[in-house]
Nucleic acid binder design. Structure first.
Lengths: 219, 219, 219, 219
DNA sequence: GATGAATGAGGTTTCATTCAT
DNA sequence: GATGAATGAAACCTCATTCAT
């Protein structure tokens, strides 16, 4: 489903090499940003020649996109299990929040790439990437909420798609708050505490309250 | 309070010129991104020489920051009135949502700059900017929620700062959904409808439900 | 005799202003070098507008040359008295050395300009400046040595002009050693001591020996 | 011992190319001066792209310093043989003078760079370069004079380091007189004759007299 | 498959000088 | 006499991409 942006030669490379290249590139893109990241530097740090790099990826953009897709898969797998379970919505929500926190800390660089993509201007590219990244997750959200609607576990006057959207807005901001300098500072400004020093339980419990009420209350 | 990033010469320029420069620059930054924006092009489009541009701003970065600050002031003013009123929290929330929608459409380019800043890597700069942008708004939120806490208008077990944070997360995503290509696509993926074609009332009413419940429900 | 490189308007300015401009400019040229010195900065530091600066001097070069000429006059006056006295050559030499040391410390910036001129590439300009600077001094040297030749105070087989040249070579190096970073370091490398910390008497006495022998010994 | 200012890639280039680049650059620096020299022009004249130039040298400054070091090595080699011989001091002196004249004519551009360095303002850089250039030569001088002191070939009351300094002052001025416009003019003003047309023997014999006396005479 | 030398367009920034007021 | 806003050419340096080996 996701369009591949690497050449066949990359597929033929050893897993070790593939991972090394992707990790090295992700690190560079995450720390410098797309424009300032340097493909020649990435190649050197990954221990391959620039020529070989271009045997693997046609352009800088393709390398970047491949990194993004790779990160997206990791996130998707982490959520897959949670969302496909038979748990009630609020149980899922709690798992979702905890997983979001843990995953964001562990895969900080991929989240940073995600934020980077977010300000990309190439409309065609953006459309493609957004679909690759968001479709899968949004479907899981909407599916779970719709199921809860049918079982009467949530208020009946909610629009599942918009509520899924609002929910993800908060989780998205949380992810960025754990990983991107600007959002980290924003988090501290709002809460008065540095994310890294904040008690994770406080976030979980408060956010759970916020969501639980939002989804279940009905006048 | 916000540190100025323009030179005295810029202050001495006519209001007309100041606005033209800021608007031209904002347009360029918003459409190309910081790195790809071209100062020479901005100067030409603003009808001044590049030399004069550098009499007004020491660096490309300073010009960018000044644009961001300018956009932030506009947003801040728009919210000032709402947040400082005596309205109850939910009335404020409704006004807030509507204003966010309207303002985002009208000042799309400034919101785009905001998103751009968000992926900046210079930690010092980011810290400064984040404070300039977020402090004022966050204080308004927290103040309003805290007031509502005292008057008993909202549930007593909420943490005003975290709830303010969650609230702004959604409004932030909404702003970006109106203005940035990636978020536009994301919005459509979630809701099935293009933001520009969506009935604004649907957003307002659903988001209001979401917020109202989140803030007022208590087991 | 020295061609003036300032405009009439400069002459009409008050002495205070003239001195301030020349000193400010000399300082800038001495510390940054001709190319990197900034006329706009000089004007600002001298408390006049750049427009007025150009009413006083047609070009940056003219301002520079005027500074050089000014410094040269100061040096020339310091030597005038010594060289025109009736003292014997070696007495003159001693006074010359001492004066060179003192003057160099006091007028460091002018000496630095002198060194700067020395690497100028405009052949016409160089010719003019060299004549303005060197003619007067060289004549004094040659005259003094020639006199000493006639009175039999020095060896009869010396060429007064070449010996004057050799003598000035050393004094020139001494001047630069007191004022220019490179020559300061060179001095320390040769002598093992920083010029500023060296006992001036050591220099005087050794150089006097050097010169005395050179001029008076004959097989 | 001298710190290298070129990148590894430069070392890997062919000797022919290395020489061509250094000579082309030296020519440009010598004729225009450091500031006005144009790297793009140097690259073009050396027949390589500007990009490759920057693969060889990180900055304009590094290219310049490398040229200076290269010139210094040539000079150092020329003096090595003379100074390390068993000749008596005055024999060495004669060879030194002749070699200085010949070398200066043949390597005029390198001497010009030397003069250029002399007015550099970066104190750190100047210190480094001065040591790279002067240490080797000064040691040779001081060693030779000290030896002569022990064998009783020179006056016993001289300070070998200061006398070495005075000696080099004159040779330095001679080098510049052969190569730099300003010093050429100065030479002519002092001697009445253009350096290029002057009988080299006159210089050698007079300077030898000057030095011989200075070093051997004792009251 | 793998290398890395080579390219060159393009962008930020500086500053001497002009000129209308 | 005095101002300072305005100009714009020019230079250093970066880096994605190619291609011969």
């Amino acid at each position: 489903m996701t369009e591949k942006r690497y050449k066949d030669a990359f597929e033929r490379a050893s897993d070790e090499r593939k991972n090394l290249i992707l990790e090295t590139a992700t690190k560079e893109f995450a720390s410098k940003g797309y424009e300032k990241a340097n493909i020649n530097v990435i190649a050197k740090n990954a221990g391959i020649s620039i020529g070989l790099m271009y045997k693997y990826f046609s352009t800088k953009e393709d390398l970047f996109i491949t990194c993004v897709q790779h990160g997206m898969n990791i996130l998707d797998n982490a959520l897959e299990e949670i969302m496909m379970s038979d748990d009630k919505l609020l149980i899922k929500a709690e798992k979702l929040i905890r997983t979001t926190c843990i995953h964001s800390k562990k895969n900080a660089n991929y989240i940073r790439l995600y934020n980077e993509i977010t300000s990309e201007r190439n409309p065609m590219l953006v459309k493609t990437i957004a679909n690759e990244i968001e479709s899968s997750i949004s479907k899981k959200y909407v599916y779970s909420i719709s199921s809860a609607l049918k079982t009467g576990d949530v208020r009946q006057d909610l629009d599942p798609r918009l509520f899924a959207f609002f929910l993800d807005d908060i989780l998205l901001a949380l992810r960025f708050s754990y990983t991107c300098d600007y959002y980290k500072e924003r988090f501290e400004i709002y809460t008065g505490v540095n994310v890294e020093e904040m008690d994770e339980e406080a976030i979980v419990s408060q956010l759970l309250k916020f969501i639980e009420s939002a989804f279940t209350f009905e006048k």
